[in-house]
Design a binder for these strands. Structure first.
Length: 140
DNA sequence: GCCAACGTTGGC
DNA sequence: GCCAACGTTGGC
């Protein structure tokens, strides 16, 4: 099992939107970046990820699970772009903010800090465990 | 709302 | 194949 981070502007697609989709989940479409696409190709069903709100609030608000492996992005005819489906698993009771992450030495190498523009990112097992602890959520 | 950082595009 | 120009993203 691997861990990831999915970034979204809440004005476009928020955690609440994701929760509303329930067990069915939703395509993580609209990604037009090769690095992000390549990470999605590496994902397996059952992999977990953080759901991060960019821009205004800048915090990890929930945990999601990959429920379909990479497939063509239905929002474009361009066959270069693929996406996975993800479903909401549970909210993070104490959302972990970007400031919190930056203030934590053990998280200073996170992609979120180093390359804030990448919309789909890998998260290490250690980072996953620590952020879950900070957020007051059982990540298992 | 501004601006820096980054990725992509297209001309050469 | 290089590099300048451009568009987009996201933190501040």
């Amino acid at each position: 099992m691997r861990y990831w981070l999915f970034k979204s502007e809440p004005d476009t697609w928020s955690w609440d939107n994701q929760v509303a989709k329930g067990e069915t989940g939703e395509e993580w479409d609209g990604v037009r970046n090769y690095q992000a696409r390549n990470f999605m190709r590496e994902m397996s069903v059952g992999d977990r990820g953080f759901f991060y709100h960019s821009q205004k609030t800048r915090e990890i608000v929930g945990i999601v699970e990959v429920c379909a492996e990479a497939h063509p992005d239905s929002t474009t005819d361009d066959d270069r772009w693929e996406c996975v489906d993800i479903k909401a698993v549970k909210p993070v009771p104490n959302p972990v903010t970007l400031d919190d992450i930056k203030a934590t030495e053990a998280l200073s190498d996170m992609v979120l800090v180093k390359n804030s523009r990448l919309s789909v990112q890998p998260v290490t097992e250690d980072e996953w465990a620590l952020i879950c602890k900070m957020g007051g959520v059982d990540g298992v």
